[in-house]
């Protein structure tokens, strides 16, 4: 299977919960060291001692694009879906419909924000921050998916519904 676009591969088994990816994301996109401004969210399941990075997977049939009342969710050239901050009114429809609950709220503006794979960089900053643990890795477009990446993808699949 060849990938049609760049994907982030999430391997929660390797995640140690250090949250360096969140810091890196906030530094890249908001120029501040504050995990609340990150597009990545590492969820901790205390009872199971498990960490789970949640990030926008840019679904093929993204429901957030369809439900946004302001048409602010826009598919980018690199396949990711981002919020147009000029028209977003912060109604959070995209958060509520998201099958993984990934869009995060910018605490300063109330608008939503999701991963754009750091479109202007050679590698997303969260991937660079996670180079040691390799819980977040980038599978580049056209590459045949490695068995390990495929296994990780199968594990982290959220079961997003197909509508037709």
């Amino acid at each position: 299977m060849k990938l049609r676009r760049d994907h982030l591969s999430i391997d929660p088994e390797k995640c140690t919960g250090c949250r360096r990816c969140m810091i890196a994301c906030a530094m890249k996109h908001h120029n501040r060291i504050d995990p609340d401004f990150s597009c990545v969210e590492v969820i901790r399941f205390a009872s199971q001692d498990l960490e789970m990075p949640v990030i926008c997977l840019a679904c093929e049939t993204a429901p957030c694009i369809k439900v946004c009342p302001m048409n602010a969710r826009i598919r980018q050239a690199n396949g990711t879906v981002v919020t147009n901050t000029e028209v977003c009114i912060g109604c959070r429809a995209c958060v509520y419909i998201c099958p993984v609950g990934s869009p995060r709220i910018n605490p300063a503006t109330g608008q939503t924000m999701t991963c754009n794979l750091c479109a202007d960089e050679s590698e997303p900053w969260c991937v660079a921050a996670c180079r040691q643990e390799r819980a977040l890795t980038l599978c580049t477009e056209g590459a045949a998916s490695k068995p390990a990446a495929r296994r990780a993808a199968a594990r982290s699949r959220a079961g997003s519904p197909r509508h037709y």
Binding site: R92, V95, Y96, I97, C98, P99, V100, G101, A158, G159, S160, P161
Partner: peptide, 19 residues
């Protein structure tokens, strides 16, 4: 139905409804 922070995870329940 959800109000406030519980609504943030509503998408997971929609997925559960589909599956």
């Amino acid at each position: 139905q959800a109000i406030g922070t519980f609504a943030d995870g509503l998408g997971l329940l929609i997925g559960a409804m589909w599956r």
